[in-house]
Design a protein around this nucleic acid. Sequence first.
RNA 1: CGGGAUGUAGUGUAACGGCUAACAUUCCUGUUUUGGGAACAGGCGACUCCGGGUUCGAAUCCCGGCAUCCCGACCA
Length: 416
Amino acid sequence: MRQSTLFTKTKKEAPKDEVSKNAQLLIRGGFIYKEMAGVYTLLPLGLRVADKITDIIKKEMNSIGGVEMKTSALQSKEVWEKTNRWDDAVVDNWFKTTLKNGTEVGLSFTNEEAYSHILKDFVSSYKDLPLYLYDFKTIFRNEVRSKSGIMRGREFYWKALYSFSKNKEEHDAFYEKIKDVYMRIYDTVGLGAYTYITFASGGTFAKYSHEFQTISDAGEDTIYIDEVKKIAINEEVFNDEVLVDLGVTKDSLVQKKAIEVGNIFSLGSKFSEPFELTYKDNQGEEQLVYMGSYGIGITRLIGTIVETLSDEKGIVWPESVAPFTVQLIGLGDSLEKEANALYEKLTGLGIEVLFDDRIHASAGEKFADADLLGMSHRVVVSPRSLASGGFEYKKRTEQEGRIITESELLEILHVR
RNA sequence: CGGGAUGUAGUGUAACGGCUAACAUUCCUGUUUUGGGAACAGGCGACUCCGGGUUCGAAUCCCGGCAUCCCGACCA
């Protein structure tokens, strides 16, 4: 994409009402736009990051048998009444609205009810199970207090997968598998080194649920980490019994603030029972479906990456989630000739390039913007670089660039 | 929902109860520049959040509302 066609502009200063690092940098870079407290629009650059993360998650979900669908944003009161979660006294942060005919509906809050209700129509035999269904969708929560920029909004984008298994054994096997898949996702988006699988309260059908917590001072949660075993315990379940369960001692634990970037639950028959979601086993006996839920907040993940990996100059995206692979800067007389030619070439090879082709922007401004926007690879084409024999190449994480040839660049970008 | 703070050009700041609300940046014009948010000159841009009140006079003081942020509570 040519930067001259990108309508967003970078800002030198963040709005004063944004205190959190993630919102400051994302707004300064033109990734997001604040509509109101806790509600942000994804601008073109922000959407590209969200799409990258979505694709990574999608690939992983599909690898373990996940099937994607899209549940509706408007949710039925009758369906929610089956689990007694429609009442504001039970769930107090609903967004609700009313149809012209007076019917009350809710704005998608979570998906257990929706899936259970839908599957009642399709599942009847053990041959229909297991099923692993997932959504990417916008979720609405009427939080009394949104906070921390994009990290805790009233409207956010997430992936939720629900598993429907024949029994606990089948469920447990999948549950263990998804733990690995989740950790792989955090690895891929660059948070692996900072993210711990964390024991949290389990609810009715399991002693524990598991959260994925990324170490950050911006986090809302407090966890206790065992660095050696690579596990953590959420403060909310931190007691002697848990320590014994997990075979850890207080001395081996470090207390840290962390951001919850995902969580997985064993639901058992908590939802299948009220919805009478059952199947006939091979003996012809009626059995309840055994469920689990698995969520990752995509917008929160974007915020976490910015909180965790940025530096004083701006954002440092891991290549896997960067809106573009290459930030190409053209300077002086080279802009419309050699730089443009390189842009055409790389784009033709399928490489995603953000080409700073702005004629009136100074070199310093382009460098500062490149640092702020955070693309992993920066390539400068200028009379100076050409005189030295090629292009100047620098990773976002490096201080000094070096001159390389076009074929060396293609090597770095894994094309030949 | 309790407590605290703040609302002034797009953004960041300034202005004793008193002159045409100032400066920087963004943006526009021109000239000169072209490797770290360049320089000079000129210009556009504000019902000072909204509504009342006090006063000869309000961005400034008072009351109400709204909005935003922070702490706490809450968070399938």
